[in-house]
């Protein structure tokens, strides 16, 4: 009889604990990408002097690395995207070696990547729009639709030596990332 009284005393609290364990697990798993991405977007925006601005990184070294798993063989350029006030135009110049422009949504998904094999000698004109409010692009423009207003653009250019990095600095000098209302 004593045991019969004890069981109901623990059963509901244990079930409550199990429910919180499942909810806590799912909530944490669901929040991790957006929390980390928001931190990355904030840091990149600060480094670039604001949102929708392209910033060219230096050669990655152990002393200046800013993000996990950076590659010292690549020259990175970044742009923190915010489409809440309209679309963003991006220009990526043709490189002599491997070049890619990868667009990430606010949940870390890589929604689109354009590499140099698909970039003509005149470079790539890209219009980044929100899935909520797409607008017509100019002829010849590649349209990238992000499922969220916030995201990131990460441009990678192969630069495994100081000489290659110097060449890349010239190649990316005309690259940009700007809101359309900036007059583009």
């Amino acid at each position: 009889m004593a045991q019969d009284k004890k069981k109901p005393g623990w059963l509901k609290p244990l079930a409550f604990g199990a429910l919180l364990a499942v909810l806590g697990h799912l909530l944490t798993i669901g929040l991790i990408p957006s929390v980390i991405m928001n931190i990355a977007i904030k840091r990149i925006a600060e480094a670039s002097g604001g949102i929708n601005r392209l910033a060219h990184g230096n050669m990655v070294t152990p002393q200046n690395q800013q993000i996990v798993r950076s590659s010292p063989d690549l020259a990175y350029s970044t742009c923190a995207l915010d489409l809440s006030k309209g679309p963003v135009r991006v220009f990526i110049g043709k490189g002599a070696d491997y070049t890619s422009a990868a667009f990430y949504a606010g949940n870390t998904d890589n929604v689109f990547t354009l590499n140099d094999r698909k970039i003509g000698p005149e470079g790539a004109q890209i219009m980044v729009v929100s899935a909520r409010s797409p607008i017509a692009a100019k002829p010849g423009e590649v349209v990238v639709s992000l499922p969220s207003d916030k995201g990131l653009l990460l441009v990678r250019r192969l630069a495994p030596s100081a000489e290659a990095f110097k060449r890349v600095q010239g190649e990316r000098a005309k690259d940009f990332c700007r809101t359309v209302t900036d007059g583009m």
């Binding site: 005393g9 409550f16 604990g17 919180l20 364990a21 806590g24 697990h25 799912l26």
Partner: peptide, 26 residues
């Protein structure tokens, strides 16, 4: 019913859920 049982189970459950999420994602 004593509240401490709910408190212990709740804290342990939440800790287990968050901890396992961090372990898996790490």
């Amino acid at each position: 019913m004593p509240m401490w049982r709910w408190l212990i189970c709740g804290v342990l459950g939440l800790g287990l859920g968050v901890g396992s999420a961090l372990a898996v994602s790490g």
